[in-house]
Amino acid sequence: MKQVTTEKITEAVRELCIDAANDLPHEVEGLIQQAAKEEESEFGKYSLEKIEKNIKVARDENVPMCQDTGVAVVFVEVGQDVHIVGGALTDAINEGVRQGYTDGYLRKSVVKDPVFERVNTGDNTPALIHTDIVPGDNVKIQILPKGAGSENMGFLKMLKPADGLEGIKGFVVDSLAKAGGNPCPPVIVGVGIGGTMDKSAFLSKKALSRTAGEPHPDPRYRQLEEELLEEINKLGIGPQGFGGKVTALAVHIEAYPTHIATLPVSVNLNCHAARHKEITLTGEGGTINV
């Protein structure tokens, strides 16, 4: 059986945290450049110009593009034919986050308890880890540093099946209208549809891990993504909420079968600094995909 050491996992997570904070994926940068061409509003154009410049400065100087280097959301896919050796997977990931956020001079933004002890843990742990067991013998690790400005503008609603497509559209567009200039637009919109309440919320986050701008493989959902993007951009919120044509860069939908009586919908937003990095550990080193 193929083996992956926890040491290797820690090292990979450490690197991913630093790279993610400092080096925006090129496809997100491409969407921002496209937005800059389309935007007509004076302050929208000004904002996008600064945002583009900032991406380059962060990459060149190897510093975080945003001071909110987020909580580390980690999606792990563990092949069922691989053996993880050297300790607990969760500990290895948290150690990687600890090292990455400390050695990379990233901000530590996690408090120990949400209500009774809002004391900074000092090393950005614990990470938010989602583990999935999949066929194969690789370990894929994906990191999304998630800032709170956009996270705070998330919404969930349990729609009725009768609400249908129009209900979904109305809820998503209303959510963006409520978020306004708060989540650092232009945003990427993650939409989770179906499953249960918690599943839809998870899917809306998972949707943000997709390569930015890549359409849904099902043409029906692809069309819904396009229609939602068009409706959202009619809101006029624009870059930074200053007014303009580009409020969202992309809409990503993830769907799952659901109960006959329900239609859960969640909206999770990502700011224009839609950071993510991933690596696949094959047991003999790894390949970084950005």
Partner: peptide, 12 residues
Amino acid sequence: FAAIGGAAALIA
């Protein structure tokens, strides 16, 4: 005053 959110490396 509004500064550009996410342009943090530049602002520094």
